[in-house]
Amino acid sequence: MDDFLTRLPGAVVDDAGLQHLGNPLGEQRALSVGRSVAVLGDRRVLAVTGEDRLSWLDSLTSQALTRLAPGVSTELLVLDPQGRVEHTASVLDDGETTWLIVDAGDAAGLLTWLTRMRFRLRVVPRDAGDEFTVVGGTSAAIEAFVGNSGDHTARVVWHDPWPQISTGGYGYAAVEPHPGSDRDWSELLVPRATLEQMVDAATRDGLGMAGLIAVDALRVAAWRPRWSTEVDERALPHEYDWLRTAVHLSKGCYRGQETVAKVHNLGHPPRRIVALQLDGSGSRLPVRGAAVRVGADDVGVITSAALHYEDGPIALAVVKRSTPTDADLVVDGEDGPIAAAQEVIVPPEAGATASVPRIPRLGRRTPAR
């Protein structure tokens, strides 16, 4: 964690990084329109060099990377032999190095696995997290952040492809418009040695700072899955609509590919992710892992919950495939049960392309002008 963040006015910081600066809802709004950026202390950077790096990563992961052009953003999954998600990474190659942005809790495990899989290939994976930190925001905000520093040298910027369907991918969510369709999110690699000076320059010129709570609320509202929250030991990419951006269905063989193809072709993932509009009358959000019920029956768990500046209290949950799409759900909260309206992301028949109607967002308000 970068210690200077604790000195920002109103800063609330923990081991993961800057959580907020006293106004998480205002920070969300500023982030969404490009008036602020966030230092992502809960991310870590890995680097892979060597002539074989792209074809090597292609052979190991769910994404087609052999012909990845410099500057093109994508993401990958590392699956186990049964097709379950073990690791995830945002990917960008600059022509010499392939950069992987990962959740901090996944970095050591992914690096260990990559190191074991080198064999005799010309690849060198390493942890670059002590050299670089990650700053997130809209494309315009990231450009302003770099420009305000006076340093106009080329930098590595990953642009989130979600929720567009990448080449070779497939989208299960059949709603229009997708709630992430206007998502504008980029992540910049910044040398740790210059981060404090860049933040100082940006804030002097009017670019604000936001915390991780604001970042996560925007992610949840866009139905964007994440390793540190949505993934468990049973996770299949289909269950999270992750085939959109992280899986190439027609690339060469890789570990877990047979399960990916089988589940996709049959259209029956055992679970499915849903978006929840939570009753806002309570004062607390449900915690990750809180039970989701239909009547007295447990049907799933909360993976992420947030208070959104427009939508109010929202959550993502993973439920059994058999859970009726029109069921009234209840979530276990610390202050008692919380009523939840369900919005289908992955249909029970995940290979189907039938239109799934979108329910109104009960907490949505017209933004102030």
Rank of each mutant, 00 (worst) to 15 (best):
G17Y: 01
G22F: 03
L25W: 06
L31F: 03
R43V: 04
V45K: 00
V45P: 02
V48P: 02
R53F: 07
S55Q: 13
W56I: 11
L57S: 07
A64H: 07
L77K: 05
D80I: 11
T88S: 14
V91A: 08
V91W: 05
T98S: 10
G105I: 13
G109Y: 05
F119Y: 14
V124I: 12
P125H: 10
G129H: 12
A144W: 02
A144M: 00
S149T: 04
P161A: 07
Y172H: 11
V175Y: 01
P177I: 14
H178Q: 12
S181M: 10
R183H: 04
R183M: 11
W185N: 01
L189E: 01
R204L: 03
L212G: 10
I213S: 08
L218Y: 02
W227S: 11
D232G: 11
D232T: 13
E233C: 00
E239F: 05
L243W: 07
T245I: 04
A246K: 00
G256W: 06
G267F: 12
P270E: 08
I273R: 08
R288A: 15
P313S: 10
I314R: 01
A315T: 08
A315L: 10
S322N: 12
V331H: 04
G336R: 06
A341E: 13
E349T: 13
A354Y: 08
V356D: 12
P360W: 08
P360R: 14
G363R: 09
R364K: 13
